[in-house]
Design a protein around this nucleic acid. Sequence first.
DNA 1: CCAAAATATGTCATCCAGTGCCACAAGCAA
DNA 2: TTGCTTGTGGCACTGGATGACATATTTTGG
Lengths: 190, 190
Amino acid sequence: MGLRERTRRAVRAELAELALGLFVERGYERTTVEDITAAAGLSRRSFFRYFPTKEDVLFGDVDDLAEQIAEDIRARPGGEDAWACLHAVLRDWEPRIHAAQRELTGLRLIETTPALRARLHQKRDELRGRIAAALQERPGASLDTFTADLLTAAAGAALDAGARAWLRSDGTADRTELIDQAFTLLTPRL
Amino acid sequence: MGLRERTRRAVRAELAELALGLFVERGYERTTVEDITAAAGLSRRSFFRYFPTKEDVLFGDVDDLAEQIAEDIRARPGGEDAWACLHAVLRDWEPRIHAAQRELTGLRLIETTPALRARLHQKRDELRGRIAAALQERPGASLDTFTADLLTAAAGAALDAGARAWLRSDGTADRTELIDQAFTLLTPRL
DNA sequence: CCAAAATATGTCATCCAGTGCCACAAGCAA
DNA sequence: TTGCTTGTGGCACTGGATGACATATTTTGG
Protein backbone atom coordinates (compact mmCIF):
# COMPACT_ATOMS: atom_id res chain seq x y z
CA MET A 1 0.00 0.00 0.00
CA GLY A 2 1.64 3.22 -1.22
CA LEU A 3 1.52 6.71 0.14
CA ARG A 4 -1.45 7.46 -2.07
CA GLU A 5 -3.77 4.91 -0.55
CA ARG A 6 -2.63 5.76 2.95
CA THR A 7 -3.30 9.47 2.68
CA ARG A 8 -6.58 8.78 0.98
CA ARG A 9 -7.78 6.73 3.90
CA ALA A 10 -6.56 9.27 6.37
CA VAL A 11 -8.31 12.13 4.61
CA ARG A 12 -11.52 10.13 4.36
CA ALA A 13 -11.45 9.38 8.07
CA GLU A 14 -10.69 12.96 8.98
CA LEU A 15 -13.46 14.29 6.78
CA ALA A 16 -15.92 11.85 8.32
CA GLU A 17 -15.00 12.76 11.86
CA LEU A 18 -14.96 16.47 11.20
CA ALA A 19 -18.28 16.33 9.43
CA LEU A 20 -19.92 14.38 12.23
CA GLY A 21 -18.71 16.99 14.70
CA LEU A 22 -20.14 19.84 12.67
CA PHE A 23 -23.40 18.02 12.05
CA VAL A 24 -23.91 17.38 15.73
CA GLU A 25 -23.00 20.95 16.56
CA ARG A 26 -25.13 22.85 14.05
CA GLY A 27 -27.35 20.19 12.59
CA TYR A 28 -27.05 18.38 9.30
CA GLU A 29 -29.01 20.76 7.11
CA ARG A 30 -27.36 23.85 8.47
CA THR A 31 -23.89 22.51 7.71
CA THR A 32 -22.79 23.00 4.12
CA VAL A 33 -20.20 20.95 2.34
CA GLU A 34 -18.16 24.11 2.19
CA ASP A 35 -18.18 24.34 5.98
CA ILE A 36 -16.69 20.87 6.13
CA THR A 37 -14.06 21.45 3.50
CA ALA A 38 -13.10 24.78 5.02
CA ALA A 39 -12.48 23.06 8.35
CA ALA A 40 -10.57 20.25 6.67
CA GLY A 41 -8.56 22.51 4.41
CA LEU A 42 -9.38 21.14 1.02
CA SER A 43 -11.56 22.20 -1.87
CA ARG A 44 -15.27 21.62 -2.26
CA ARG A 45 -14.57 19.76 -5.45
CA SER A 46 -12.26 17.32 -3.76
CA PHE A 47 -14.81 16.50 -1.09
CA PHE A 48 -16.94 14.90 -3.77
CA ARG A 49 -13.98 12.81 -4.83
CA TYR A 50 -13.95 11.24 -1.39
CA PHE A 51 -17.69 10.90 -0.93
CA PRO A 52 -20.28 10.72 -3.68
CA THR A 53 -22.77 12.75 -1.64
CA LYS A 54 -22.87 14.78 1.54
CA GLU A 55 -24.89 12.05 3.21
CA ASP A 56 -22.30 9.39 2.52
CA VAL A 57 -19.79 11.05 4.76
CA LEU A 58 -21.68 9.32 7.58
CA PHE A 59 -22.27 5.93 5.97
CA GLY A 60 -18.78 5.46 4.70
CA ASP A 61 -18.06 1.80 4.78
CA VAL A 62 -21.48 0.22 4.79
CA ASP A 63 -21.10 -0.76 1.16
CA ASP A 64 -18.08 -2.91 1.79
CA LEU A 65 -19.99 -4.87 4.38
CA ALA A 66 -22.70 -5.96 1.97
CA GLU A 67 -20.55 -8.28 -0.08
CA GLN A 68 -18.93 -9.82 2.97
CA ILE A 69 -22.24 -10.51 4.65
CA ALA A 70 -23.60 -12.06 1.48
CA GLU A 71 -20.48 -14.18 1.36
CA ASP A 72 -21.04 -15.42 4.89
CA ILE A 73 -24.58 -16.38 4.03
CA ARG A 74 -23.61 -18.24 0.91
CA ALA A 75 -21.09 -20.17 2.98
CA ARG A 76 -23.84 -21.72 5.10
CA PRO A 77 -25.40 -25.06 4.25
CA GLY A 78 -28.63 -24.92 2.27
CA GLY A 79 -30.19 -27.40 4.64
CA GLU A 80 -30.21 -24.86 7.43
CA ASP A 81 -33.39 -23.02 8.19
CA ALA A 82 -33.29 -19.71 6.32
CA TRP A 83 -34.44 -17.70 9.31
CA ALA A 84 -31.87 -19.29 11.61
CA CYS A 85 -29.24 -18.53 9.00
CA LEU A 86 -30.19 -14.88 8.88
CA HIS A 87 -30.32 -14.69 12.63
CA ALA A 88 -26.89 -16.22 13.09
CA VAL A 89 -25.12 -14.20 10.42
CA LEU A 90 -26.72 -10.86 11.22
CA ARG A 91 -26.28 -11.32 14.94
CA ASP A 92 -22.64 -11.74 14.15
CA TRP A 93 -22.37 -8.74 11.89
CA GLU A 94 -24.54 -6.34 13.84
CA PRO A 95 -21.65 -4.77 15.74
CA ARG A 96 -19.85 -3.92 12.54
CA ILE A 97 -22.95 -2.63 10.78
CA HIS A 98 -23.47 -0.52 13.81
CA ALA A 99 -19.90 0.68 14.08
CA ALA A 100 -20.15 1.94 10.53
CA GLN A 101 -22.74 4.37 11.78
CA ARG A 102 -20.48 5.84 14.44
CA GLU A 103 -22.36 4.64 17.46
CA LEU A 104 -24.74 6.79 19.43
CA THR A 105 -24.15 10.29 18.12
CA GLY A 106 -24.12 9.20 14.51
CA LEU A 107 -27.12 6.94 14.88
CA ARG A 108 -29.11 9.57 16.67
CA LEU A 109 -28.27 12.09 14.00
CA ILE A 110 -29.35 9.69 11.31
CA GLU A 111 -32.51 8.81 13.16
CA THR A 112 -33.55 12.44 13.50
CA THR A 113 -32.63 13.71 10.03
CA PRO A 114 -35.07 12.75 7.29
CA ALA A 115 -32.53 12.93 4.49
CA LEU A 116 -30.17 10.65 6.35
CA ARG A 117 -32.85 8.15 7.29
CA ALA A 118 -33.82 7.97 3.66
CA ARG A 119 -30.25 7.29 2.67
CA LEU A 120 -29.90 4.65 5.34
CA HIS A 121 -32.98 2.87 4.11
CA GLN A 122 -31.70 3.02 0.60
CA LYS A 123 -28.46 1.38 1.64
CA ARG A 124 -30.22 -1.18 3.76
CA ASP A 125 -32.54 -2.02 0.93
CA GLU A 126 -29.69 -2.69 -1.38
CA LEU A 127 -28.14 -4.85 1.27
CA ARG A 128 -31.43 -6.68 1.71
CA GLY A 129 -31.57 -7.49 -1.97
CA ARG A 130 -28.11 -8.96 -1.96
CA ILE A 131 -28.80 -10.98 1.13
CA ALA A 132 -32.01 -12.33 -0.36
CA ALA A 133 -30.08 -13.44 -3.42
CA ALA A 134 -27.37 -14.98 -1.27
CA LEU A 135 -29.96 -16.89 0.73
CA GLN A 136 -31.22 -18.53 -2.41
CA GLU A 137 -27.74 -19.29 -3.66
CA ARG A 138 -26.80 -21.40 -0.67
CA PRO A 139 -25.74 -24.86 -1.87
CA GLY A 140 -28.70 -27.18 -1.72
CA ALA A 141 -31.15 -24.48 -0.69
CA SER A 142 -34.56 -24.34 -2.29
CA LEU A 143 -36.17 -21.08 -1.37
CA ASP A 144 -38.68 -19.24 -3.50
CA THR A 145 -38.11 -15.57 -4.20
CA PHE A 146 -41.15 -14.40 -2.29
CA THR A 147 -40.09 -16.12 0.92
CA ALA A 148 -36.46 -15.02 0.61
CA ASP A 149 -37.69 -11.50 0.06
CA LEU A 150 -40.07 -11.61 2.97
CA LEU A 151 -37.59 -13.13 5.41
CA THR A 152 -34.85 -10.66 4.62
CA ALA A 153 -37.29 -7.78 4.93
CA ALA A 154 -38.41 -9.15 8.30
CA ALA A 155 -34.79 -9.51 9.38
CA GLY A 156 -34.27 -5.88 8.48
CA ALA A 157 -37.29 -5.00 10.59
CA ALA A 158 -35.79 -6.93 13.49
CA LEU A 159 -32.47 -5.09 13.23
CA ASP A 160 -34.26 -1.79 12.89
CA ALA A 161 -36.48 -2.30 15.89
CA GLY A 162 -33.44 -3.42 17.88
CA ALA A 163 -31.52 -0.31 16.94
CA ARG A 164 -34.41 1.94 17.88
CA ALA A 165 -34.89 0.22 21.22
CA TRP A 166 -31.20 0.57 21.95
CA LEU A 167 -31.40 4.23 21.07
CA ARG A 168 -34.34 4.70 23.42
CA SER A 169 -32.33 3.12 26.19
CA ASP A 170 -29.58 5.70 25.59
CA GLY A 171 -27.18 2.98 24.66
CA THR A 172 -27.53 0.99 27.87
CA ALA A 173 -29.46 -2.00 26.52
CA ASP A 174 -27.76 -5.16 25.30
CA ARG A 175 -28.02 -5.05 21.55
CA THR A 176 -27.40 -8.74 20.98
CA GLU A 177 -30.15 -9.64 23.38
CA LEU A 178 -32.55 -7.25 21.66
CA ILE A 179 -31.79 -8.82 18.33
CA ASP A 180 -32.27 -12.31 19.69
CA GLN A 181 -35.61 -11.26 21.12
CA ALA A 182 -36.73 -9.73 17.86
CA PHE A 183 -35.67 -12.70 15.79
CA THR A 184 -37.32 -15.14 18.16
CA LEU A 185 -40.57 -13.23 18.15
CA LEU A 186 -40.71 -13.14 14.37
CA THR A 187 -39.70 -16.73 13.72
CA PRO A 188 -41.75 -17.58 10.63
CA ARG A 189 -44.38 -20.33 10.58
CA LEU A 190 -43.05 -22.48 7.80
CA MET B 1 -65.87 23.98 -1.26
CA GLY B 2 -65.23 27.15 -3.25
CA LEU B 3 -63.69 27.69 -6.63
CA ARG B 4 -60.26 28.03 -5.08
CA GLU B 5 -60.18 24.59 -3.57
CA ARG B 6 -61.62 23.03 -6.70
CA THR B 7 -59.06 24.51 -9.06
CA ARG B 8 -56.32 23.68 -6.63
CA ARG B 9 -57.25 20.02 -6.67
CA ALA B 10 -57.61 20.02 -10.41
CA VAL B 11 -54.20 21.59 -10.93
CA ARG B 12 -52.62 19.16 -8.48
CA ALA B 13 -54.14 16.20 -10.29
CA GLU B 14 -53.09 17.51 -13.67
CA LEU B 15 -49.56 18.15 -12.53
CA ALA B 16 -49.34 14.66 -11.07
CA GLU B 17 -50.62 12.98 -14.21
CA LEU B 18 -48.49 15.07 -16.51
CA ALA B 19 -45.41 14.50 -14.43
CA LEU B 20 -45.93 10.74 -14.33
CA GLY B 21 -46.21 10.72 -18.10
CA LEU B 22 -42.99 12.64 -18.54
CA PHE B 23 -41.17 10.54 -15.96
CA VAL B 24 -42.16 7.31 -17.68
CA GLU B 25 -41.25 8.74 -21.05
CA ARG B 26 -37.83 10.22 -20.32
CA GLY B 27 -37.02 8.96 -16.87
CA TYR B 28 -37.29 10.74 -13.55
CA GLU B 29 -33.86 12.32 -13.40
CA ARG B 30 -33.94 13.53 -16.96
CA THR B 31 -37.20 15.36 -16.40
CA THR B 32 -36.79 18.76 -14.78
CA VAL B 33 -39.44 20.58 -12.85
CA GLU B 34 -39.33 23.15 -15.58
CA ASP B 35 -40.28 20.50 -18.13
CA ILE B 36 -43.34 19.72 -16.08
CA THR B 37 -44.38 23.31 -15.53
CA ALA B 38 -43.84 24.16 -19.17
CA ALA B 39 -46.18 21.36 -20.17
CA ALA B 40 -48.71 22.41 -17.54
CA GLY B 41 -48.45 26.11 -18.27
CA LEU B 42 -47.52 27.51 -14.91
CA SER B 43 -44.39 28.84 -13.30
CA ARG B 44 -41.63 26.82 -11.69
CA ARG B 45 -42.26 28.62 -8.44
CA SER B 46 -45.91 27.70 -8.39
CA PHE B 47 -45.08 24.03 -8.81
CA PHE B 48 -43.45 24.12 -5.41
CA ARG B 49 -46.59 25.64 -3.98
CA TYR B 50 -48.48 22.52 -5.01
CA PHE B 51 -45.82 19.98 -4.08
CA PRO B 52 -43.08 20.48 -1.51
CA THR B 53 -40.59 18.55 -3.62
CA LYS B 54 -40.34 17.07 -7.08
CA GLU B 55 -40.64 13.60 -5.61
CA ASP B 56 -43.93 14.33 -3.93
CA VAL B 57 -45.68 14.79 -7.22
CA LEU B 58 -45.91 10.98 -7.23
CA PHE B 59 -46.76 10.40 -3.59
CA GLY B 60 -49.40 13.03 -3.30
CA ASP B 61 -51.96 11.77 -0.91
CA VAL B 62 -50.05 9.25 1.15
CA ASP B 63 -49.89 11.65 4.06
CA ASP B 64 -53.62 11.88 4.45
CA LEU B 65 -53.82 8.12 4.72
CA ALA B 66 -51.59 7.96 7.76
CA GLU B 67 -54.00 9.62 10.13
CA GLN B 68 -56.96 7.64 8.89
CA ILE B 69 -55.15 4.34 9.24
CA ALA B 70 -54.04 5.25 12.74
CA GLU B 71 -57.64 6.12 13.49
CA ASP B 72 -58.83 2.73 12.34
CA ILE B 73 -56.27 1.04 14.55
CA ARG B 74 -57.20 3.05 17.60
CA ALA B 75 -60.82 2.10 17.00
CA ARG B 76 -60.07 -1.57 17.55
CA PRO B 77 -60.38 -3.22 20.95
CA GLY B 78 -57.18 -3.47 22.96
CA GLY B 79 -57.96 -7.07 23.73
CA GLU B 80 -57.36 -8.04 20.13
CA ASP B 81 -54.04 -9.55 19.18
CA ALA B 82 -51.81 -6.74 17.92
CA TRP B 83 -50.65 -8.68 14.90
CA ALA B 84 -54.18 -9.63 13.91
CA CYS B 85 -55.13 -5.99 14.28
CA LEU B 86 -52.34 -4.88 11.94
CA HIS B 87 -53.21 -7.60 9.48
CA ALA B 88 -56.87 -6.72 9.37
CA VAL B 89 -56.45 -2.97 9.09
CA LEU B 90 -53.60 -2.99 6.59
CA ARG B 91 -55.22 -5.65 4.47
CA ASP B 92 -58.12 -3.31 4.24
CA TRP B 93 -56.11 -0.24 3.44
CA GLU B 94 -53.63 -1.79 1.05
CA PRO B 95 -55.60 -0.98 -2.09
CA ARG B 96 -55.69 2.68 -1.19
CA ILE B 97 -52.04 2.83 -0.20
CA HIS B 98 -51.35 1.22 -3.50
CA ALA B 99 -53.59 3.50 -5.49
CA ALA B 100 -51.76 6.46 -4.04
CA GLN B 101 -48.72 5.18 -5.83
CA ARG B 102 -50.53 5.17 -9.19
CA GLU B 103 -50.50 1.46 -9.80
CA LEU B 104 -48.01 -0.31 -11.98
CA THR B 105 -46.24 2.43 -13.89
CA GLY B 106 -45.81 4.61 -10.84
CA LEU B 107 -44.74 1.73 -8.64
CA ARG B 108 -42.21 0.51 -11.13
CA LEU B 109 -40.82 3.98 -11.54
CA ILE B 110 -40.51 4.34 -7.80
CA GLU B 111 -38.95 0.92 -7.48
CA THR B 112 -36.27 1.70 -10.05
CA THR B 113 -35.40 5.26 -9.04
CA PRO B 114 -33.22 5.57 -5.95
CA ALA B 115 -34.41 9.03 -5.00
CA LEU B 116 -38.03 7.93 -5.15
CA ARG B 117 -37.44 4.76 -3.19
CA ALA B 118 -35.77 6.81 -0.52
CA ARG B 119 -38.72 9.15 -0.36
CA LEU B 120 -41.14 6.26 -0.21
CA HIS B 121 -39.27 4.73 2.68
CA GLN B 122 -39.28 8.03 4.45
CA LYS B 123 -43.03 8.30 4.13
CA ARG B 124 -43.56 4.70 5.10
CA ASP B 125 -41.38 5.13 8.13
CA GLU B 126 -43.37 8.06 9.33
CA LEU B 127 -46.51 6.05 8.81
CA ARG B 128 -45.01 3.17 10.76
CA GLY B 129 -44.29 5.41 13.70
CA ARG B 130 -47.85 6.65 13.83
CA ILE B 131 -49.25 3.16 13.55
CA ALA B 132 -47.02 1.95 16.36
CA ALA B 133 -48.31 4.75 18.55
CA ALA B 134 -51.89 3.99 17.59
CA LEU B 135 -51.40 0.33 18.44
CA GLN B 136 -50.41 1.26 21.96
CA GLU B 137 -53.27 3.71 22.33
CA ARG B 138 -55.98 1.16 21.71
CA PRO B 139 -58.35 1.15 24.67
CA GLY B 140 -57.29 -1.53 27.10
CA ALA B 141 -54.19 -2.47 25.19
CA SER B 142 -50.96 -3.08 27.05
CA LEU B 143 -48.16 -3.27 24.53
CA ASP B 144 -44.58 -2.29 25.22
CA THR B 145 -42.86 0.08 22.83
CA PHE B 146 -40.35 -2.44 21.61
CA THR B 147 -43.01 -4.94 20.56
CA ALA B 148 -45.20 -2.29 18.97
CA ASP B 149 -42.18 -1.07 17.07
CA LEU B 150 -41.16 -4.52 15.98
CA LEU B 151 -44.61 -5.59 14.88
CA THR B 152 -45.23 -2.49 12.81
CA ALA B 153 -41.83 -2.84 11.20
CA ALA B 154 -42.61 -6.46 10.41
CA ALA B 155 -45.98 -5.47 8.99
CA GLY B 156 -44.18 -3.00 6.76
CA ALA B 157 -41.90 -5.80 5.64
CA ALA B 158 -44.93 -7.91 4.79
CA LEU B 159 -46.52 -5.14 2.71
CA ASP B 160 -43.21 -4.48 1.02
CA ALA B 161 -42.56 -8.08 0.13
CA GLY B 162 -46.11 -8.35 -1.14
CA ALA B 163 -45.70 -5.30 -3.35
CA ARG B 164 -42.45 -6.61 -4.79
CA ALA B 165 -43.93 -10.03 -5.50
CA TRP B 166 -46.89 -8.42 -7.21
CA LEU B 167 -44.51 -6.34 -9.28
CA ARG B 168 -42.55 -9.44 -10.29
CA SER B 169 -45.77 -11.03 -11.46
CA ASP B 170 -46.40 -8.01 -13.70
CA GLY B 171 -49.51 -7.20 -11.79
CA THR B 172 -51.20 -10.57 -12.27
CA ALA B 173 -50.92 -11.89 -8.71
CA ASP B 174 -53.64 -11.41 -6.11
CA ARG B 175 -52.32 -8.78 -3.75
CA THR B 176 -54.65 -9.58 -0.89
CA GLU B 177 -53.62 -13.19 -1.00
CA LEU B 178 -49.94 -12.25 -0.99
CA ILE B 179 -50.47 -10.06 2.03
CA ASP B 180 -52.35 -12.79 3.85
CA GLN B 181 -49.53 -15.18 3.10
CA ALA B 182 -46.90 -12.77 4.36
CA PHE B 183 -48.79 -11.94 7.53
CA THR B 184 -49.46 -15.58 8.27
CA LEU B 185 -45.83 -16.52 7.77
CA LEU B 186 -44.62 -13.82 10.11
CA THR B 187 -47.18 -14.31 12.86
CA PRO B 188 -45.16 -13.53 16.00
CA ARG B 189 -44.56 -16.08 18.76
CA LEU B 190 -46.04 -14.23 21.67
C1' DC C 1 -72.54 45.17 -6.61
C1' DC C 2 -68.43 46.92 -4.51
C1' DA C 3 -64.48 47.74 -1.50
C1' DA C 4 -61.25 45.38 1.71
C1' DA C 5 -59.02 41.34 3.22
C1' DA C 6 -57.20 36.87 2.02
C1' DT C 7 -54.94 34.07 -1.11
C1' DA C 8 -52.62 32.64 -5.58
C1' DT C 9 -49.38 33.72 -9.15
C1' DG C 10 -45.19 35.24 -11.55
C1' DT C 11 -40.60 37.26 -11.45
C1' DC C 12 -36.25 37.72 -9.54
C1' DA C 13 -32.50 36.70 -6.58
C1' DT C 14 -30.13 33.44 -3.88
C1' DC C 15 -28.47 29.06 -1.70
C1' DC C 16 -26.64 24.68 -2.03
C1' DA C 17 -25.59 19.92 -3.80
C1' DG C 18 -23.59 17.73 -7.49
C1' DT C 19 -20.92 17.32 -12.18
C1' DG C 20 -17.93 18.20 -16.25
C1' DC C 21 -13.80 20.28 -17.73
C1' DC C 22 -9.17 21.74 -17.72
C1' DA C 23 -4.70 23.12 -16.12
C1' DC C 24 -1.40 21.77 -12.85
C1' DA C 25 1.04 19.35 -9.16
C1' DA C 26 2.35 15.15 -6.79
C1' DG C 27 3.31 10.18 -6.64
C1' DC C 28 5.14 6.28 -9.16
C1' DA C 29 7.64 3.16 -12.20
C1' DA C 30 11.19 2.52 -15.66
C1' DT D 1 15.44 11.96 -15.02
C1' DT D 2 11.51 10.84 -18.07
C1' DG D 3 7.11 9.68 -18.87
C1' DC D 4 2.57 7.87 -16.92
C1' DT D 5 -1.01 7.90 -13.71
C1' DT D 6 -3.66 9.98 -10.39
C1' DG D 7 -5.18 13.67 -7.19
C1' DT D 8 -6.24 18.63 -6.71
C1' DG D 9 -8.10 23.25 -7.27
C1' DG D 10 -10.75 26.47 -9.84
C1' DC D 11 -14.44 27.52 -12.76
C1' DA D 12 -18.72 27.26 -14.88
C1' DC D 13 -23.10 25.22 -15.02
C1' DT D 14 -27.38 22.41 -13.99
C1' DG D 15 -31.23 21.76 -11.13
C1' DG D 16 -33.88 21.59 -6.84
C1' DA D 17 -35.58 24.48 -3.28
C1' DT D 18 -36.65 28.98 -0.70
C1' DG D 19 -37.49 33.93 0.36
C1' DA D 20 -39.22 38.52 -1.03
C1' DC D 21 -42.18 41.41 -3.43
C1' DA D 22 -45.35 43.17 -6.69
C1' DT D 23 -49.47 41.86 -9.18
C1' DA D 24 -53.74 39.56 -10.10
C1' DT D 25 -57.82 36.91 -8.57
C1' DT D 26 -61.22 35.10 -4.99
C1' DT D 27 -63.68 35.57 -1.24
C1' DT D 28 -66.19 37.97 2.26
C1' DG D 29 -69.03 41.36 4.41
C1' DG D 30 -71.49 45.32 3.89
